[in-house]
C-alpha cells in the first residue's frame, strides 16, 4: 500500500450525483485498508452551482480538502468544470471527464461564451485528459442519472484494484433495484 496520500477531486454541477460517486469511492478505499477523508458540499451551493468533492486516502490523511496542484485525479461530470478546477491537478495528474456541456446562467443569457475546444487546450498544456460521453453511456445503461457510475468505471482503469472490490462498493451503496443499471454503467465506462 502506498504510504503517500493520494487525492481525487470530483467536480461537476450541483444535482449531477457527485455525492454518490464520493460515497462509493470512500467505501471502496476504506475496505482496501486506507485511511480516508471525503469532504462534501451541502446547502445552497448544491442548487445548480459548481460543486466539488474531495476524496483523500493513504496511510494517514490530515487535511480534508485538496489544494491547488495536489490532485492525482480530477473526475469531472461536466466539461468546463474540469477546466475550471484544472489548477488543482498535480503535475502528471489525470483528468477523467464527461464531455457533457451544461451552460451556466451567464452563458444561457448570452453574457458570456462557453469556452471552446477545452479538451484540446488542456492537452496542449500537457495535461492527461480522458474524455468520454458519459451521458450517452448512462442512457445506454438504462438511466441518464448513472453518469456518476460511468465515470467511476472509467476511473477504475487507473487503479490497481480488483474489479470485484469496485462492484462490491457499488452493491453497498446503490439501491438494489438500480444495481443492474449501475453495473452496466460501470462496465460501459470501463470499456469505453
Amino acid at each position: 500500500m502506498s504510504k503517500e496520500t493520494k487525492n481525487i477531486m470530483i467536480v461537476g454541477v450541483g444535482g449531477q450525483g457527485s455525492l454518490l460517486a464520493s460515497k462509493i469511492l470512500g467505501s471502496l478505499l476504506l475496505s482496501e485498508g486506507y485511511d480516508v477523508k471525503v469532504s462534501e458540499v451541502h446547502g445552497m451551493s448544491q442548487r445548480g452551482g459548481s460543486v466539488v468533492t474531495y476524496v483523500r486516502y493513504g496511510e494517514h490523511v490530515y487535511s480534508p480538502i485538496i489544494d491547488e496542484g495536489e490532485a492525482d485525479y480530477i473526475v469531472s461530470f461536466e466539461l468546463m468544470e474540469s477546466a475550471r478546477w484544472l489548477k488543482y491537478l498535480k503535475k502528471d495528474g489525470q483528468i477523467v471527464t464527461n464531455t457533457q456541456q451544461i451552460d451556466p446562467m451567464s452563458v444561457v443569457l448570452g453574457a458570456e461564451e462557453y469556452p471552446e475546444n477545452l479538451v484540446e487546450k488542456m492537452k496542449e498544456k500537457g495535461v492527461k485528459v480522458d474524455a468520454l460521453d458519459c451521458l450517452s453511456l448512462a442512457e445506454k445503461a438504462g438511466n441518464i442519472k448513472a453518469v456518476n457510475v460511468v465515470l467511476l468505471g472509467r476511473l477504475s482503469h487507473y487503479f490497481d484494484l480488483p474489479e470485484e472490490s469496485w462492484i462490491k462498493a457499488l452493491e453497498n451503496n446503490v439501491p438494489a433495484k438500480l444495481l443492474d443499471i449501475n453495473k452496466k454503467a460501470f462496465q460501459y465506462g470501463k470499456e469505453a
Binding site: 459548481s50 496542484g69 477546466a83 446562467m105 462557453y114
Partner: peptide
C-alpha cells in the same frame, strides 16, 4: 503547491 490553468476565462457557475 501549484498547478497549471488555461488562459480562457471560465464563466462562473453560481447556484441558481
Amino acid at each position: 503547491h501549484k498547478g497549471v490553468a488555461l488562459e480562457d476565462p471560465m464563466p462562473p457557475r453560481p447556484p441558481a
